[in-house]
Design a protein around this nucleic acid. Structure first.
Lengths: 110, 110
DNA sequence: GGTTGACATGAACGGCGGTTCAAGTCAGTC
DNA sequence: GACTGACTTGAACCGCCGTTCATGTCAACC
């Protein structure tokens, strides 16, 4: 288990947990994934149209996000559909994620 | 220069820059420092009353925050006073920091 | 049931980042 | 101007994290 996810599990609600979740998002790929999912559920292939990296690498990043509870996955036929769990997506719709300890909101542009 | 700060300097405004700034905050100590400064300027000694770590280590973290532009320092006699630059501290007063690419807001409790 | 397409998982490598230790700077005080 | 107090800087260690390569799984299709 990655350090960030383990930190979250072990210290839920503490400052360390907050830093742990931020650490999960402190990666361009994972941040791009979350921002893509803010616009709605996406298959892995669709996500990769945004981030454009080796699918294996994307899968690893998705695992980190999953273990941090920042995304959820479910099978959709041959593909897998990723989405933000209700606890993470907050108003204003498609513009912010709730990390529990803090809220990360993105600008109106883009 | 730390990777996070270098990433910011080299890719201002991009997703990588955003991730870089998040990475700077994705550390319990640095997060605690910023949260302490949200309540107003503090000397290093005062900051350390919040975070309780080796002063040398705190100094290193403060340097990372400085190089990321998330804090500013100025001499105050024998001590050094740290503060959030105006561009970073945003409304609601003492509750959020503006990273340029996104805004990080903290809950009302604590 | 074999094949293909779409992802996930495991192992291993390399580099960055947090920490520590030792030394340096800067400003007051005697 | 030596001394102390408050930080800062530099070098070095080492573990974690992002990446890659190789392999495994799961579902649809023929």
């Amino acid at each position: 288990m990655p350090r960030a996810a383990r930190g979250i599990a072990g210290t839920r609600g503490s400052a360390a947990a907050c830093a742990g979740r931020l650490r999960v998002l402190a990666d361009p790929t994972r941040l791009a994934v979350v921002r893509a999912l803010l616009r709605g559920p996406r298959h892995v292939g669709e996500i990769n149209e945004s981030v454009r990296i080796d699918p294996t690498l994307l899968s690893h990043h998705l695992r980190v996000l999953r273990e941090a509870g920042l995304v959820v996955a479910r099978r959709d036929g041959k593909a897998v559909l990723y989405d933000l769990p209700p606890s993470v997506a907050v108003l204003p719709a498609g513009r912010a994620v709730d990390l529990g300890c803090c809220v990360l909101s993105f600008g109106t542009r883009r």
